[in-house]
């Protein structure tokens, strides 16, 4: 191969290598700036990723909906339209196999269908919140301690939603960001 060709291919590669992370940032920033924020009640646990570091895994209280339709396929997309309750937490307004046009919605994934209770169980695409390695486990403990106080569940995730995409911005315990709460 001639050096000119090698250099041209290399330049294309450089652009591709820069484009992928840049596109990831752009997509997330778009949701954060243009999206609407919702609070999702959650329960954190602490696992770890070999490359991305420690994160808390978030189990959401909204994880199923009553459905008479028994043909839900595991792993298939389910669109959840959102509303907020009196306390300002996200609730399921309706759900469907197709996207909504008149409401904020999130594309989630069907986990399984429970025939006994006639409920479809699903998971949101924002279950991982990355934290400082020293704080991830502490966060789980802090959540458990916060649970034992007077309020029922005061841990929630702040999620921005825009055109079906969702970006997890932060996790709060008693309205304090979890990273700050742990330091207390």
């Amino acid at each position: 191969m001639k050096t000119v060709h090698i250099i041209s291919i290399f330049l294309v590669l450089v652009l591709a290598q820069l484009f992928v992370p840049a596109k990831m940032i752009f997509d997330q920033e778009k949701v954060l700036t243009k999206g609407v924020s919702y609070k999702f009640k959650t329960q954190p646990v602490d696992p770890s990723d070999p490359f991305k570091g420690k994160y808390i895994y978030l189990n959401y209280e909204i994880n199923s909906a009553v459905s008479k339709d028994t043909t839900w396929v595991n792993g298939s997309p389910i669109y959840i339209a959102l509303a907020t309750d009196a306390l300002g937490f996200a609730t399921v307004k309706r759900f469907s196999r197709t996207a909504f046009e008149d409401s904020d919605y999130i594309q989630a994934k069907v986990d399984w269908y429970n025939k006994m209770n006639q409920t479809v169980h699903f998971s949101f695409p924002f279950t991982e919140f990355y934290m400082n390695e020293a704080k991830a486990y502490e966060a789980e403990v802090a959540h458990m301690n916060a649970q034992s106080d007077s309020l029922p569940n005061n841990t929630y995730a702040l999620v921005y939603v825009f055109e079906g995409k969702a970006v997890l911005d932060n996790v709060f315990i008693n309205d304090i960001p979890i990273a700050d709460y742990v330091e207390k």
Binding site: T127, E128, Y130
Partner: peptide, 19 residues
């Protein structure tokens, strides 16, 4: 460097993802 770059962006924006 490429691996660390994608991993860090995923970490900053809490992008969950299949390994």
């Amino acid at each position: 460097a490429v691996g660390s770059s994608i991993a860090l962006i995923s970490q900053i924006y809490n992008i969950p993802g299949d390994l």
